[in-house]
Amino acid sequence: MKCIAGLGNPGKKYDGTRHNVGFMVIDELLRRNGWKVKKDKFSGQSAVETVNGEKIILLKPQTFMNLSGESIRPLTDFYNIRAEDVLVIYDDLDLPTGKVRLREKGGHGGHNGIRSTIDHLGTKEFKRLRIGIGRPQNAMPVVDYVLRPFTKEEKHDAERSVKTAAEACEAWMEKSFPEVMNEFNR
């Protein structure tokens, strides 16, 4: 059994913002596969599907970004999912817009959603899919930058990265994570 959790902030106010690329990937997976969110528990929206005989749980925590672990932990406990079978999708300021990177484990890198996930799971041993959103220009505060939509110039790269991330998630449903990393970390 695997859990794919896309991080973001709930509510229309945050739709389409840089901080919500994790939600965008989950929405893309739902759309591509004709899946629907069926459960609104564990402080999140989730869909439980079976792919090649394995249960896959898609999760959009509704706790707001900084408390993401408060949704991920109860879900993984309920379904008895090991931390190494969790993939967390989130925005990354240190990657240019449109870039996608997968990692098997690591620190939080200053990302509060990942910090919360590490704190609640009690380990750094979960998989990550980072989506580049670039850094703010002109001394714009990071908090303002991440809560803004992508610019017209960035939109194409952002949409492409969401599709690439969804493809990587689908690949992980059928292949080992190192194989997926080799394929998508180009």
Rank of each mutant, 00 (worst) to 15 (best):
K39C: 06
T76K: 01
M140Y: 01
E167P: 00
F150P: 04
E84C: 09
K105C: 00
T50V: 15
K99I: 13
E159S: 07
H19N: 06
D91C: 06
H111A: 05
G113V: 05
M173R: 03
V51L: 08
R73H: 04
G98Y: 04
I81C: 07
F78A: 11
V25Q: 04
L29H: 00
I57F: 02
G109H: 04
E153M: 11
T97C: 15
D92R: 13
H156V: 15
F42L: 12
L147R: 00
R82F: 06
D40M: 14
S43E: 14
T76W: 05
T123M: 12
E153Y: 07
E84T: 12
Y79P: 02
L87G: 14
L29E: 08
D92Y: 00
Y79T: 02
K36G: 11
I26L: 14
P10Y: 09
E84L: 07
M140G: 11
V142Q: 08
E174W: 02
G6E: 04
V180P: 02
G107M: 02
F64E: 08
E70G: 13
F23Q: 12
V143I: 09
L58T: 07
L58A: 08
L95K: 12
N185M: 10
N52A: 15
K13N: 08
F126N: 02
G16E: 07
D85H: 13
N112T: 10
K41H: 13
P141Q: 10
P136Q: 13
K152A: 15
V51G: 13
P149L: 06
I26W: 11
F42R: 07
W35G: 11
F64Q: 05
G106M: 00
A5Y: 01
K163G: 03
M65N: 05
K41W: 14
A171N: 04
I118W: 00
K99D: 10
G6M: 08
K36E: 15
Q62S: 12
L75D: 14
A139E: 14
D144V: 01
M140I: 15
M181Y: 01
K2V: 00
V143L: 03
A47P: 10
D85A: 09
T117A: 13
L87F: 04
S46I: 07
E170M: 14
K2A: 00
G132S: 02
H111F: 01
L147S: 03
G34N: 01
L121G: 07
R73G: 01
I133S: 05
T97P: 10
V51S: 13
E54W: 12
L7S: 04
N33Q: 05
K38Y: 10
G110K: 02
K38Q: 15
S43G: 12
L102G: 08
G107K: 07
R135S: 09
K99G: 01
C169N: 04
G8A: 07
I57P: 04
R186P: 05
N185K: 10
P149G: 15
W35P: 00
G8S: 05
A171R: 03
K175L: 15
I4L: 12
E174F: 07
E54A: 15
R101V: 13
